[in-house]
């Protein structure tokens, strides 16, 4: 009887946590590197993202090989020399909206939020806080954010030869439209 009760409680918890999840597997993340010598940008349209409206928990997963460049060689160098995708195929973010109560998921509108969590890239784990926006419209939640990533902090090395072409700080822009399950 006791066990039965436990199972009920566990099942109840599981169901509870899956109640209000928004998700997508075709979100967009772009990045820009701006230097006087060269501007580089790449786009990934296969970003997986999920948001739990109840808890404010947020997750992103990106296959690094899916970033597309305007030059094929750049894409190869990005994979091989900088992100080392053979060793680190995925970048992830796991965190939560710090002020989730400020978002009214039931009412259409745009809500500025702050998201705190762990950004994992190139095998490096870092605690970050990123300002962003949650836009609610009918059954969709649009997540957008712009932030900067310092290559040095993620142990991405740029050889002296290429230092003038690749910015030390890369601008990342997130744009994911999540559907309610």
């Amino acid at each position: 009887m006791k066990y039965f009760f436990c199972i009920i409680v566990v099942l109840g918890l599981l169901q509870h946590s899956e109640a209000q999840v928004y998700s997508t597997s075709s979100g967009t993340i772009k990045f820009f590197s701006k230097t006087t010598a060269e501007n580089i940008d790449a786009t990934n349209n296969q970003v997986k993202a999920a948001l739990d409206a109840k808890t404010g928990n947020i997750e992103f997963a990106v296959s690094v090989n899916s970033f597309l460049f305007k030059k094929a060689l750049m894409q190869k160098h990005f994979q091989e020399n900088y992100m080392e995708t053979i060793k680190f195929p995925k970048s992830t973010f796991i965190g939560s909206i710090t002020d989730n109560t400020a978002v009214n998921y039931g009412k259409d509108g745009t809500y500025p939020v702050s998201v705190k969590g762990k950004l994992t890239m190139h095998g490096v784990n870092r605690e970050v806080t990123i300002p962003g926006k949650v836009s609610i419209s009918s059954k969709k939640a649009l997540l957008s954010a712009d932030f900067n990533v310092l290559l040095e902090e993620y142990k991405i090395k740029v050889p002296a030869n290429n230092a003038s072409q690749i910015a030390k700080s890369i601008k990342v822009s997130v744009d994911c439209s999540l559907q309610k399950k």
Partner: peptide, 12 residues
């Protein structure tokens, strides 16, 4: 992941 779940490794 608690929301996204574990997916099989992607092939490229």
């Amino acid at each position: 992941f608690s929301l996204l779940g574990d997916e099989p490794a992607e092939s490229s």
